[in-house]
Amino acid sequence: MISLKPVYSSADQAVADIFEGATIMVAGFARPGVPQELVKALIRKGVGKLTVIANAAHGTREDLADAGRLVAAGLVRKVITSFPAPTRASVEGYPEKLYRQGKLEVETVPQGTLSERIRAGGIGLGGFWVRTGVGTVFEEGKEKRLFNGQEHILERPLRADFALLRARVADALGNLVYDKAQRNFNPTMAMAAAVTIVEVDEVVEPGGLDSESIATPGIFIDRIVKAQSG
């Protein structure tokens, strides 16, 4: 018997069991690959004190329902991200505003280290040694060790209770195919959460995807939501 994954017609139903204080990974980079309907559903649900792990979290794009909009909605207690601030330094992002008020903890992580910490969490590693951040504030408080005469720092894995993902198409087994730059953090976060929820444009029958094109195998996916818009 094949293991079909539940397909939800409502994003609200798919996020119904996300609880206060949960750790949530939100995929996407700029607009591609952001699970906007799941994020909107989470904002409607209004569950708070979340820890959010995402590439960007400044929340200054009101037309984009990304992790930053969870911060802007006041639902986040801690954010782990490589973009806590918008790239224009003249603009203050929501994390900075809330951080100044003592309402938000911010862990700023170099982007490659962020994706690799998520990967480490997803593939069962206790951490990894990396040169990224040596000689900068990003090495503070971390163990150091020489490999091949070069300093490395120890980075620890990240895992989450839920991962919110976006792909172009899923089959009913949860196998995913992405569209172009949609891929970004999605395949990595898919491995690193207890429950993974993916929002897709289209759901097809098992066998309906080209096996060579599947970038995330269904064993990493728990729930599928058919998106209402692109």
Partner: peptide, 11 residues
């Protein structure tokens, strides 16, 4: 600014 965005530059 209290916060900045390293993005991929550190890597």
């Amino acid at each position: 600014r209290a916060l900045g965005s390293p993005g991929g530059a550190v890597d």
